[in-house]
Nucleic acid binder design. Structure first.
Lengths: 296, 296
DNA sequence: CCAAAAGTGTTCTCTATACACCCATGA
DNA sequence: TCATGGGTGTATAGAGAACACTTTTGG
């Protein structure tokens, strides 16, 4: 006990309690999955859709709006452990791909008190977690996500210039909808650049979670080509078309099959399994090749 | 006042004070620059060196060891603003390139009390901040940095395998030295992978700052090709050889001049200025082209 | 047969790499 | 003059984009 006491005293030498208020630290979880949409046509391939899990707030502030699942970091766990705990509470899943994204520390981001939030991205495949959009508990739902650049403006200033870009974020789950406009400003002055993000409009989306979602989508798009994150969104066995659809849904554009197959060739291993269900040529099933990257 | 009171009460509804102790949040600054080393030979080009600013600790714990500059986040500033403030206190500089890196939240990382640290990387050019290695205040010094992968081990486990890699971090400033070995473990099981980093040995380096430095070096290497970060390490006017040396110092390998010039051609603008000082053909001076990337 | 997707081959362009070569200077 | 770095041209190999084409199924 005296050891702890002296440790705390050592700490207080450098830490002025009057000036530095200890904030609350939370983790916010960006849980993504890719699901099949019902295919209306006769034997058309079913489209896939990128989904994110949101929870309906049952308290003020933002009562009734949608928010990312999250929780506070407690004294006896690391922030990574807090993220794992929050994820398990929300989905019941363990051993899921988790990645720290960014830490949000603006002053007024929680109107109640000072909260600093560390955001984590989790990727699961929908087979493992079969909660369907629109079903399940009323307060946790998978929302279809998409974002799109809608406007770009360049302004010349005295010492440089400024580029403003607006991203439109759209989320939907059955009749529930949420949306936001996030403005990203890049200011270049005296050869130095600075990037600032702000939420212009938010509809049904709590706190600054729109920024977090835009950030996560950006990260997903950036990493999908040179990492193995796409495989976390698929079951163990999948066709190359499945994989291609995951890429297309995340990148938001169509890809050519021939080039795609060559690009992912060394990330996958062919198996003996074959999927023969639809009205067309059956497809070989592949699995992830965990050794595709010799480096870490 | 009553508004604040009810806001706090709203907050306490979701926040169990007994379970969630509010930690201290600090920012730690990874301040890099590139300096010229004295060239010993007659008209050889002077080598460049990547430097990081470290501060000698004047308190327990880690008394006398070297640490990253840092400070606690106060109640009336965002964490970005805290980073700017810490940087200005340390260097007197404002309007410097700053980038949030990662947030470190392990339980025992500060032996005194629970501290969560958000690390920021700052890049400055040494002309702006002429503190020389070995000179200046005894307690703040530029250290030469380098890291190197020294060992790699692959082990097959029951449900997958495990790759361990060791990185040797070396820091030096005159007679002062610090070093550390950071082990990175990638565990692949059931098709899922997890990466863990730990410090195996640390000599003269305080806290978990060795991990932060290794992380920052990795980030620098990854971003230098597709962003403009290299230019923040150079003065406004520079030769293409200067730029190439910055790349070489960060990537830790030599590059071919012809290919390099073509690669950076659209990131720079030719100027009328010429540098004519050494015993060889004079070189054109270039400056950063802030519009090289049409996108953000 | 036919619609649809699975899967392959070919051509073209662009980029990175390697290397050879010339240029301009100050000592 | 010559050592040294500045700067350019060219040939080659590999990756990605575009597109044409064949294969295989269920209805």
């Amino acid at each position: 006990m005296s050891e702890n006491h002296s440790a705390e005293q050592l700490f207080l030498k450098e830490y002025d309690v009057n000036q530095y208020v200890r904030p609350s630290v939370s983790v916010d979880m960006l849980l993504f999955t890719v699901t099949e949409e019902e295919s209306e046509n006769y034997r058309k391939r079913s489209d896939k859709s990128l989904k994110i899990l949101l929870i309906k707030r049952k308290e003020h502030p933002f009562l009734g709006q949608w928010a990312l699942p999250g929780g506070f970091v407690s004294a006896n766990e690391s922030i990574d452990e807090a993220a794992i705990r929050v994820l398990e509470k929300e989905t019941g899943l363990r051993d899921v791909y988790l990645e720290q994204l960014y830490t949000w520390g603006d002053i007024g981001r929680d109107p109640r008190t000072r909260v600093i939030s560390c955001s984590y991205m989790a990727l699961i495949n929908s087979d493992l977690y079969p909660l369907q959009p629109g079903e399940g508990a009323e307060d946790a739902k998978w929302f279809h996500v998409s974002d799109q650049w809608t406007q770009k403006k360049t302004t010349v200033t005295e010492n440089g210039f400024m580029i403003e870009k607006w991203a439109e974020l759209r989320l939907g789950s059955g009749t529930d909808e949420a949306s936001a406009t996030v403005k990203t400003t890049k200011i270049v002055e005296h050869g130095h650049s600075k990037v600032v993000q702000e939420i212009e409009k938010a509809h049904n989306l709590a706190f600054d979670h729109a920024k977090m979602i835009v950030y996560a989508l950006e990260r997903l798009r950036n990493k999908i080509d040179y990492t193995d994150i796409a495989f976390h969104l698929l079951p163990e066995y999948f066709t190359l078309s499945d994989l291609q659809q995951v890429f297309e849904v995340i990148l938001g554009k169509e890809l050519l099959a021939a080039a795609f197959r060559r690009k992912v060739a060394d990330k996958v291993l062919e198996t003996n399994h074959i999927r023969r269900n639809a009205g067309h040529r059956p497809s070989k099933l592949y699995r992830y090749n965990p050794q595709w990257d010799d480096e870490l």
